[in-house]
Nucleic acid binder design. Structure first.
Length: 840
RNA sequence: GCCGGGAUGGCGAAACCGGUAGACGCGCCAGACUCAAAAUCUGGUGGGGGCAACCUCGUGAGAGUUCGAUUCUCUCUCCCGGCACCA
């Protein structure tokens, strides 16, 4: 760590002279603290040793160029948690790395003609410097970047293992195709149905792609959520819904001139309410109809989705066309029209539905548009009106008792479900089965800046995994990217190879992995980043699971689900013993300015570098932790930052003045406190208790608040001109508590003051302070007095007053007497330590 | 469209198990210091009423449960995150 030239470092010698400089110089203080940490190697995590392990991890950044405020927030929260655990005596691992593959590097290459690798490595170097300037307690020896072959070779290796197990496979899947740029587009690159660069309407194309069979782990991924007590309920709920396990009935409807039309339903109880059938435009039935009828083919073609995003599909107007085919209702024998509808998704279930417009809102809306009948077959218990009334203004989607359902009338949901499912199974019409919303994970990307998929395509042998001895498949870094597809497809020296099985000329796969592939296992690699003989070794089990994971809520589903999935894959490969990667999860909120998320496109960003240059790392950290709870959105405020800096200046000045005063003061004596000093001490300990409680909850803004109150209490005490044994005792103790409580948040200033005040060298290793119960004792307490629930006054009573004494005091309060007057007291509630409510 | 979350003074927020709404900070107002300003320090600061003691309204909207609701239940509005190729 470099110390700014020309600055005379204050000489912090424990227990001796305090620096003369009363001015808080953040740059000097921070350089001093960081130099000490660097010198002592305090953040190098020992794989074994004394203390319980604690693995604290923040989601690693994409090296986009420079840190943004969201990074600063994320990493400050993680660092505060890590440092807090160090002070609890844990052996803490807090690593940092780079999620280095991705589209922005290719975009930069197109725009500026820099190779993606060069751009990425430069960004990493710059951002690493910024992280170091912020004083995060990272073990930099474990740093990794996912774009380096020594990292990605192991995910290539794992992929070949999954291929052999059948957990990776290849099939056709849809992509967004830009017909002008002749390239595949990410959903992000499709704006209002058009390519972002060409402006051409995107097309949907089916190409062969690699998939990971995440659905094979659907049940385990779902059930595992129940054990994750340290995760927010909201994230678990989102994952549950994403996996979307539902138990239902697979049913076949006979369609003359087509055959059996299979559907899946979770509501067999509504079978009598089916009034039409609907299939997706890509469904074989639709294709068959189109083949024999050009007019219908044209109409069906228009119903085909153009984009791949589900949001785009589900928000379009409900459109359809009648195929003219009729299905036979399996129980009533009624004829049901078969429609092609754009709200039916080919990817979910069977790509066909039995429409029950009385009890499904989408079916209801479609029926309304096309004048199809709506038949209610379920009604709430005790519903006595005309059943048709139930579905006049929308579908009735609750469960209830069956009506209009022949022999099943009057049955409740589960009985009806069972009876109809039993009948369907007996008659061979269908079977019960479990359906997931979760789809297998498509990992192929037709892009350059990613990990090459380690497969060789041979005409004779098919898709052959690259043998271990040939790994890694190196991504050539010296390339030109021009936006018209991946350069790998134009590099014979990359793709021309020979089949590892038969030796014939063969073509190397030119697709790369989804970048979620890299981020799905990096947390494990941090345990052994230097290992070059295997993906992981026993050190992974020494550190895993991650005890505390911190990152944005936007990763609630995909990244966190894929990381959980990979953990199970690695476990089943015998690499690790844990089932789940992250024991506790904190999802931090966004950073906003003027009510909107900070982003370059909105032009409302604040550059963290400017903030650090002006005020220092501690001010940035303090503001971020104080301005809002970690999980909530944080509204940026330049004045708030200045306020945070003001507090640090006050803290510095107070400590320096006290140290100077202490030179001529008598020894500290806690037995000689006056009333004000005793009260201040009580407040210090009360706020310590609060801060410890809040730290445990992860509510850091109120920890800062408690620290501010402590300083307020101490500064309010008059400084004795002579004597001062009591003052010295209260302030010395108070400062030692305050510095420790704040040290995870503002580690630099507290480190220097701790040393300067002579408490020892390593604040990091100081124990967390404990509140003294004796200091907390008060003789009198204040109780609120309500009359019929409204506050009418307060009373002071001895702390040990009994209920009768409290009642008497409450009734004697003058304002209370006014409101009670001669009205009879119906009830008198005493909440110990809080309030009295007199109900008249 | 579906899933998840949020809404409290002029602003960021606090209120632990249903018990004094607005701690702490920002901003603003007044005062001290200063030739002046900045910085710093002291005091005040939810709306309305009152000389005051106090009264009254008030936690997105509407209902409900309760002696008592920011907190629990139901309905609604608006904003934010995710929706499988942004990371």
């Amino acid at each position: 760590m470099d110390v700014p030239a020309g600055y005379n470092l204050p000489s912090f010698v424990p227990g001796f002279a305090f620096p003369m400089n009363r001015q808080y110089d953040a740059a000097a203080v921070e350089a001093q603290a960081q130099a000490w940490w660097q010198d002592q190697q305090v953040f190098a995590a020992a794989d074994a040793g004394p203390g319980e392990k604690f693995y604290c991890l923040s989601m690693f950044p994409y090296p986009s160029g420079a840190l943004h405020m969201g990074h600063v927030r994320n990493y400050t929260i993680g660092d505060v948690l890590a440092r807090y655990q160090m002070m609890q005596g844990r052996r803490v691992l807090q690593p940092m790395g780079w999620d280095a593959f991705g589209m922005p590097a290719e975009n930069a290459a197109i725009q500026r003609g820099i190779a993606p690798s060069r751009w990425t490595y430069d960004n990493i170097a710059h951002m690493r410097g910024q992280l170091q300037r912020l004083g995060f307690a990272y073990d930099w020896q474990r740093e990794l970047a996912t774009c380096r072959p020594d990292y990605y070779r192991w995910e290539q290796w794992l992929f070949t293992r999954l291929l052999k197990k059948g957990l990776a496979y290849r099939r056709l899947a849809a992509v967004n195709w830009d017909p002008v740029d002749q390239t595949v587009l990410a959903n992000e690159q499709v704006i209002d149905g058009r390519g972002w660069r060409s402006g051409a309407p995107v097309e949907r194309r089916e190409i062969p792609q690699w998939f990971l069979r995440i659905t094979a782990y659907a049940d385990e991924l779902l059930d595992g959520l129940d054990e994750l007590d340290g995760w927010p309920e909201s994230v678990k709920a989102m994952q549950r819904n994403w996996i979307g396990r539902s138990v239902g009935l697979e049913l076949s409807f006979e369609v003359p001139a087509y055959g059996a039309l299979k559907v899946f339903t979770t509501r067999p109880d509504t079978l009598y309410g089916v009034t039409y059938m609907a299939v997706a435009a890509e469904h074989p039935l639709a294709q068959q109809v189109a083949a024999g009828n050009p007019a219908l083919a044209d109409a069906i073609e228009k119903l085909k989705p153009r984009e791949t995003s589900e949001a785009a599909l589900q928000t379009q107007d409900k459109l359809g066309v009648d195929t003219g085919l009729r299905a036979v209702h399996p129980l009533t024998g009624d004829e049901l029209p078969v429609w092609v509808a754009n709200f039916v998704l080919m990817d979910y279930g069977e790509g066909a539905i039995m429409a029950v417009p009385g009890h499904d809102q989408r079916d209801w809306e479609f029926a309304r548009v096309y004048g199809l009948p709506i038949t209610p077959v379920v009604a709430p218990e005790g519903f006595s009106d005309e059943p048709a009334k139930l579905v006049e203004h929308g579908a009735f989607t609750d469960k209830g008792l069956l009506v209009n359902s022949g022999p099943y009338d009057g049955l409740a949901f589960q009985d009806a479900f069972d009876a109809i499912a039993d009948l369907a199974e007996q008659r061979g019409l269908g079977t019960r089965r479990v359906q997931y919303r979760l789809r297998d994970w498509g990992v192929s990307r037709q892009r350059y800046w990613g990990c090459p998929i380690p497969v060789i395509h041979c005409e004779a042998c098919g898709a052959v995994p690259v043998p271990d001895a040939q790994l890694p498949v190196l991504l050539p870094e010296d390339v030109t990217v021009d936006g018209s597809g991946s350069p790998l497809t134009r590099m014979p020296e990359f793709y021309e190879t020979t089949c590892p099985q038969c030796g014939a000329p063969a073509r190397r796969e030119t697709d790369t992995f989804d970048t979620f592939f890299e981020s799905s296992w990096y947390f494990a690699r941090f345990a052994c980043p230097d290992l070059d003989t295997a993906m992981l070794d026993q050190r992974a089990d020494q550190w895993l699971p991650v005890d505390q994971y911190v990152g944005g809520i936007e990763h609630a589903i995909l990244h966190l689900l894929y990381a959980r999935f990979f953990t199970k894959l690695m476990r089943d490969e015998g690499l690790i013993g844990v089932d789940e990667p992250f024991t506790r999860l904190l999802t931090q909120g966004m950073v906003l300015k003027d009510g909107a998320k900070m982003s370059k496109s909105k032009g409302n960003t604040v550059d963290p570098q400017a903030l650090i240059d002006r005020y220092g790392a501690d001010t940035a950290r303090l503001f971020i932790m104080f301005a809002a709870p970690a999980e909530q959105a944080l509204e940026w405020s330049d004045e708030g930052v200045a306020g945070a800096n003001r507090f640090l200046k006050r803290l510095w000045g107070f400590a320096v003045d006290f140290a100077a005063w202490r030179e001529q003061a008598p020894a500290a004596d806690l037995a000689t406190l006056d009333d004000a000093q005793a009260a201040a001490r009580r407040e210090i300990h009360a706020n310590l208790q609060q801060a410890s409680y809040d730290f445990g909850k992860g509510q850091f803004n109120t920890v800062v608040s408690a620290g501010m109150k402590m300083l307020n209490e101490l500064s309010r005490l008059p400084v004795p001109e002579s004597g001062g044994a009591g003052y010295r005792a209260v302030v010395e103790e108070g400062l030692s508590i305050l510095l420790r409580v704040l040290s995870p948040i503002v580690p630099h200033i507290t480190h220097c003051l701790w040393q300067g005040l002579g408490h020892g060298e390593a604040l990091l290793r100081a124990p967390w302070p404990q509140a003294d119960p004796q200091a907390l004792q008060a003789d009198e307490i204040t109780l609120a007095v309500q009359v019929s629930g409204k506050l009418r006054g307060t009373i002071r009573v001895p702390a040990e007053a009994d209920q009768d004494a409290i009642r008497a005091a409450a009734l004697a309060e003058p304002n209370v007497q006014r409101f009670v007057a001669d009205k009879p007291v119906r009830k008198l509630i005493v909440v110990p330590g809080k309030l009295v409510n007199i109900v008249v």
